[in-house]
Design a protein around this nucleic acid. Structure first.
Length: 135
DNA sequence: CTTCTCACA
DNA sequence: TGTGAGTA
């Protein structure tokens, strides 16, 4: 039950492979890392190694980009997801486990779960503000 | 050859 | 975001 998760978070491929799988440029991939949307491991000579989780997070980001959502919007959506994930976590783990802190992996898992569900409705993350910007 | 960081005639 | 420079 944890083995698969370990595998999904295992650092495997270099940026070149990720570029082909996601159709994102190296520039973009690094940029999203700067904005903490992904956290690739590093190896040898400081080279990035992405996990399967990184890959599909990137694919989700790609979808959002293709739908016209900008970085600010994506960051908002993810932040919103993290928030909901944390709230949900607090509900499932009341006082007894209240001491437990969420690890980055926990957040990434919850993040993916949320993305899968909410990936349906139209996300104009900036909501009505988006209209103002283009008004 | 691939990837990295940094910077912008 | 692109892209070229100079490395590792």
């Amino acid at each position: 039950m944890t083995g698969s998760q370990i595998r999904r978070s295992m650092p495997l491929f270099p940026i070149g492979t990720v570029m082909q799988l996601t159709e994102l440029t190296a520039r973009q991939i690094r940029y999203y890392e700067e904005h903490q949307l992904i956290s690739p491991a590093r190896t040898d000579g400081n080279r990035r190694l992405f996990s399967l989780n990184d890959i599909d997070t990137l694919l989700e980001i790609k979808d959002l980009i293709d739908q016209g959502v900008n970085m600010a919007g994506i960051k908002q959506i993810f932040a919103q997801r993290v928030q909901k994930a944390m709230d949900q976590d607090l509900q499932n783990k009341p006082a007894i486990k209240a001491k437990k802190e969420l690890t980055n992996e926990d957040i990434r898992k919850l993040l993916r779960k949320e993305l899968t569900n909410a990936g349906r409705f139209n996300h104009s993350s900036l909501g009505g503000n988006m209209h103002r910007f283009f008004h």
